[in-house]
Structures are given as structure tokens and as C-alpha cells.
Design a binder for these strands. Sequence first.
DNA 1: ACACACATGTAATTGGTTACATGATTTC
DNA 2: GAAATCATGTAACCAATTACATGTGTGT
Lengths: 201, 201
Amino acid sequence: MKRCQTTYVILGILAIHPHQSGYEIRKTIQQSVGFFWGESFGQIYPSLKRLTAEKLIVPSSSGSKARANRQEYSITPAGHACLQQWLALPYRDDPPRNQFLLKLFFARDASPGAAIAHVRRFQENNRRVLATLEFLEPLARANNSANPGFRYWMLTMSLGVAQLRACLEWCESAIAMLSAPEAIPASNATTEKSLSATNKL
Amino acid sequence: MKRCQTTYVILGILAIHPHQSGYEIRKTIQQSVGFFWGESFGQIYPSLKRLTAEKLIVPSSSGSKARANRQEYSITPAGHACLQQWLALPYRDDPPRNQFLLKLFFARDASPGAAIAHVRRFQENNRRVLATLEFLEPLARANNSANPGFRYWMLTMSLGVAQLRACLEWCESAIAMLSAPEAIPASNATTEKSLSATNKL
DNA sequence: ACACACATGTAATTGGTTACATGATTTC
DNA sequence: GAAATCATGTAACCAATTACATGTGTGT
């Protein structure tokens, strides 16, 4: 049986946190794995129906925050087995598509300021995300450091932070490089003399 | 008029390198922007038809490598204008979906070795990509350093390398951390006493 | 003769976003 | 009573992958 990725995010979240509604599941996703994973309602609600039909989750109620509207769910043993099975499989890395890098790569065909504008935007985005991660980190640490899942959360966080820092450092040098129109970094002196016979760029 | 992303990759590639066939375009994509962008034939060929209909590219022939089969294309002034327009627009960063990080995040529900296996795979992938980038770099530098597009190619490359290095460093520490099952990094002494009342993990 | 790379395309399917539609509960 | 947030869902659309189908030219 083939299942889309949304399946496993929902199962994973419910395995950690039972008794959540579709609405809440989405919020939890945003707050925990949001910086590397997103789900839309158009994906979540149909998935909840399907997973219920497949007995991987069950409608449940925790009593407390009952609302006429709302339906919450919990993971079943079958659901947990399904999640574990998926976790044991090697992850697939889907071919990346980075529009920022694409626009930067083609920037010789753009107006002069375009490249630097893209880089600045990239820099701002990275700063913003880094700030939220660094804000979240001590809070989560205080609340969850005893939890068995904490170490894995930490690992994802630290990779995120490391990548963001690398990007921000790169932004500095990229802006510097793009601001000084003359300086082309050369590996040695002879490169200036246009060896470009068979261009690939 | 709304156009998919494939449009602009094709235009961008043909702006740099005219007289390429669909087959070649794909190859060029793999060799130049391959580490952050991919296109499939199922996307390229229909796009070429559509772009021809929209007069953004034209069927052309360079004479030399003519084949009964093959049809090559070049960008038109209209196509170039379209590309420039797109390049001037702010890039959109689509919500990332990193399956590796997702599996790592949920790893407390997996078998003990799973997390470390995922990390090792991630490490190998990063090493492989880094190796190809480092292999390509001096070649491209020698052939293209005089080219106006070279600096942008360099920028994308250096970001790629920086990110890959950051990931590889992280891999080291992640494997170390996962190999020593006891050590949970604590921010201070009191965190041990399970302050976890309101768990988020 | 065979394999491999070159070359082009279509059809089925999926995975996903976005917009739309609706309504309940809380808070100010 | 207005606004915000909580809450659920559907329909239309789209971008893209994958598998399939077919054929040509080159090198061994």
C-alpha cells in the first residue's frame, strides 16, 4: 500500500502527542518541524479520513478541550507499527529545487542590482529563521530535556542552526563580492588571459 | 500568463548556451545547476513545444551536430525579455520538505540503529556531492573565469560547498552523540530534575 | 550483432497548493 | 456586536515524476 508523506508526519506527531485535532496537528507541525516541513489543511483533513479508514488512527476525546466542532485523533498500535516501518526505511532525498540559487545562477542576464537584492532577501530570511530557532531552543530544552525524543529534536535543531549560520556567512562574502564589480577571484595570474575556448557558462 | 518553473530554467540555459536540443538542455542542467535543480524529460519536451508556440524560443540549427532525429532551439528576444522579467522578481522560497530531518526527528519511535543509519546515509550523500563540486570547480574556473556569468556560477558553488561542509561537520558530532547513548547535553544542572510539565515533544 | 548513448515524446498518476465555503467559540 | 481564532472540509488546478513507447546513430 502506497502512502503519501503526510501520512507519516501525522502518525509521527500523534505518536508524540495524542488527542490532537487536524487544526492542532498542523499547528504542532509548524512549531516543531516547521523549519524543514510544512503541511496544508487541504492535505491534512483528507489524510485524517483515510488514516481513520485504514485503522492507523482513531477518533478520540481527551475530555478537556471538547468543542462541538472539533474531532481529535490518536494513533493505534497498527499506526505505530506503520510509522516504525517507515522510519526503518532509508530516507529518500528528493531532487532539490532552489529558486534562489537558480535566479542567482542566471543573474548575468538580469539587471545589475538583481543578484544583490536576491542575496539580501536570502539573508533576511535566514536571519529570521535563525532567530526563531534560537528563541525556541532554550524553551524546549527546559521543558523537554528529560524526554526521550529530545535528543532528536536537538539534532534537527543543531543542523538547522549550522546550515543557517553557514548561509549567513556566505551572504556576507557574497554581498561583498557583488558590491565590488571588478574583483574576480582568480586561482592564478594566467587566468586573466581568457583561456575560455570551450565555454560551459 | 502563468508559467511553470521549467520555463525559466530552459530560457536561462538557452540564454547562456544556444542551439541545444531537449536532451542536451537536460544534460546541461544536470552538469551546471544539477546540485540544486532538476528537470525530467516529461517536463522538458512539452515545455519546449509550449515555449515555441509562445515565441519565446525558436527551433534552430547550428549545422554541425545535425541528426535526423534531433531538434535544437535558441532563445528569442521575447524569450530573453521574459527571462529578465522573471529574474527581477523576488525569488519565492517554497516550504522545504526534508525527509531526512523528518525521520531523524521521529527517531525515538524507530529501532535503536535507525537514526545513526540515516545520518550515515546523509553523510555519504553530502560527501559525494561535495566531491563532485570540488572536482568541477577548477575545471570550470579554467574554462570560464573570463565569462561574465562565471561569478554567479562561483557564488552558487561556494554556497553549495559551505552548506555541505556545515552538514558534514554536523554529521560528525551527530554520530558521536548518537553513539554515546547516555550523554544528553544539558544547559545547566537543574534541567536533570524533569521540569517537563507541559511537554511539546 | 549488440550495446550504449542520443533523441523525442505521451499517458497515467500523484502529491500538493490554493481558493472557496461554512460555521463555532472566545475575547475585546 | 465585531474581530480573531478555532475548526472542518471540498473542488479546481498544477507541477512534476514515472513509466511507457519508439526510433536513430556510433562504436566495438
